[in-house]
């Protein structure tokens, strides 16, 4: 999976915001706020990644165990997908 090209991340007031661009502007009436860990994963999703790959990178980056990383990454990816932030 990979992030949608219809959104860009911008840091405003210390918050990482996903802002719609292009044609998506007219279809969206919201923006999305990412916490720092969410931003880290969003950046990784610039390339095609599997959930397992993302979990492994998250575990290595933050020094958490792989099981916890798996448990945290999957619902986050579900959220991104539900909000239309991933490529179909």
């Amino acid at each position: 999976m990979r992030r949608s090209p219809d959104f860009v991340v911008r840091t405003v007031g210390g918050q990482d915001l996903l802002v719609p661009i292009g044609a998506m502007v007219g279809k969206t009436n919201s923006i999305v706020v990412l916490n720092p860990t969410g931003r880290y994963i969003w950046d990784l999703l610039a390339e095609d990644r599997s959930p397992g790959e993302l979990a492994a990178m998250l575990a290595a980056r933050f020094g958490i165990d792989r099981e916890r990383a798996d448990a945290d990454v999957r619902p986050f990816l579900d959220d991104l997908g539900r909000m239309g932030l991933l490529e179909p």
């Binding site: 996903l18 009436n29 919201s30 923006i31 999305v32 706020v33 990412l34 916490n35 720092p36 860990t37 969410g38 880290y40 994963i41 998250l58 980056r61 933050f62 020094g63 958490i64 945290d72 990454v73 986050f76 959220d79 991104l80 909000m83 932030l85």
Partner: peptide, 14 residues
């Protein structure tokens, strides 16, 4: 390392 917190995405409606 940066303190860990689970990844979150929160929608802000306009």
């Amino acid at each position: 390392r940066q303190p860990y917190e689970p990844p979150r995405a929160c929608r802000v409606e306009v």
